[in-house]
Design a protein around this nucleic acid. Structure first.
Lengths: 213, 213
DNA sequence: CTTTGTGAAATCCTTCACAGCG
DNA sequence: CGCTGTGAAGGATTTCACAAAG
């Protein structure tokens, strides 16, 4: 393929492939077929091959994909060939869990600072960082060249803080606030809303229950 | 419409509409047009109207949608007209945040029990529940008629615990373990993987950076 | 002989655009 | 006259199925 454009759905699956490849590396597996990759990722092989073809041609016919090379290639496409600096805004219950989660560090990111607006939280040690006041936000973002932020603050403050992050040069935001925020064209926001996920599940639960009843 | 089938993408958006409607209720707004609903939810009005049409016809031409009636209808479709009992397995960092998150309670769910395999955690009070040993899982699930579970345990234990949940009658699982688990046809698993979300963002960050550079 | 890479077909989702209702 | 509800058009994604490569 190799024409620069990768479908959104494919991008969303690349992290899953990467994870399977990293596990395969740990197990000492050198090569995986699209069929094996698909089984481990929970999808079908045609989709795997089509997805990987957008990155270029890294497979060998009759053999499969070289695990190490493909992992490197996906990490490259995802922009995590070297670690990306990230900050976390909001050190409440969820923020604390995020700050101490080692998955970010193991999967391409480096948490460089924690911020909170609450003066009673500022100064506390959470994981390997002391919480800083939001007043210092711009200085720290600039010093570390941070382009990504995680937002774990109450919904009413989300838009104002987002505006501030965008002004400070942040281009990607992972928001846990259950509210839509508006951003300029060049900024991407992904929202993770835990209650929303449960509600979606609940819908299908209901459908399944009908067959059971 | 009214033919029982609702597209997945529509189901995934219903919780957002519901949230906008609940906020509108709080502000004392009685009626919303598809245009207003779309603006608050961050999408376009045609999509809103098409989505809502799958539920039936609840709008009034020339006026818009009656907020209270539509909210009730969406809650009904999502199966949260009355609260759904849910359990949480795994009371580590993330589990603690989930156990103390009040969004679940406010948005249609009732957390009925916490479980952990670690004997040093069992018995601890987390939020309004004492952590129970996983040995008691089946009894508790059965007693409360639980069909939904949240899974916040290490990846290597995810499949075994999932099998146990399914055997105990759970039909919907929200998993935070970064691994694919296999389940029977009638069971739904949604996976929320925080590092995956950041990696997807990172991809678009890279694209945006190219324009900036 | 096995498995990739990919056009083409099939399916699914979004957007358009407007008839028709209130 | 304003706004919903929806066929039809347009896009996007998935799946099929097979030619070509190792």
């Amino acid at each position: 393929m190799r024409d620069g454009h990768i479908p959104e759905t494919t991008v969303a699956r690349l992290p899953t492939y990467l994870q399977v490849l990293v596990e395969a590396t740990d197990r000492g597996v050198a090569t995986l077929s699209s069929e094996e990759l698909a089984a481990a990722a929970g999808m079908n092989s045609a989709k795997v091959r089509k997805d990987l073809s957008y990155l270029g041609t890294y497979g060998t016919r009759g053999v499969g994909y070289e695990v190490a090379a493909l992992a490197r290639e996906i990490a490259q496409a995802l922009g995590i060939a070297e670690d990306q600096p990230v900050v976390l805004i909001g050190v409440g219950n969820l923020g604390r869990a995020l700050a101490t989660y080692d998955g970010f560090e193991r999967r391409g990111f480096r948490l460089v600072a924690l911020f909170d607006a609450d003066p009673t939280v500022v100064g506390q040690q959470v994981g390997s960082h002391a919480v800083q006041p939001t007043a210092d936000l711009e200085v720290v973002l600039h010093r570390h060249g941070v382009a990504m932020a995680m937002l774990a603050i109450p919904a009413p403050h989300a838009q104002a803080m987002t505006d501030r992050l965008v002004d400070a040069g942040v281009r990607s935001i992972l928001s846990f606030a259950p509210v839509h925020v508006t951003v300029p064209e060049h900024v991407t926001v992904r929202r993770v809303d835990l209650a929303t996920e449960l509600q979606i599940l609940s819908f299908y639960e209901r459908v399944a229950a009908q067959f059971t009843a």
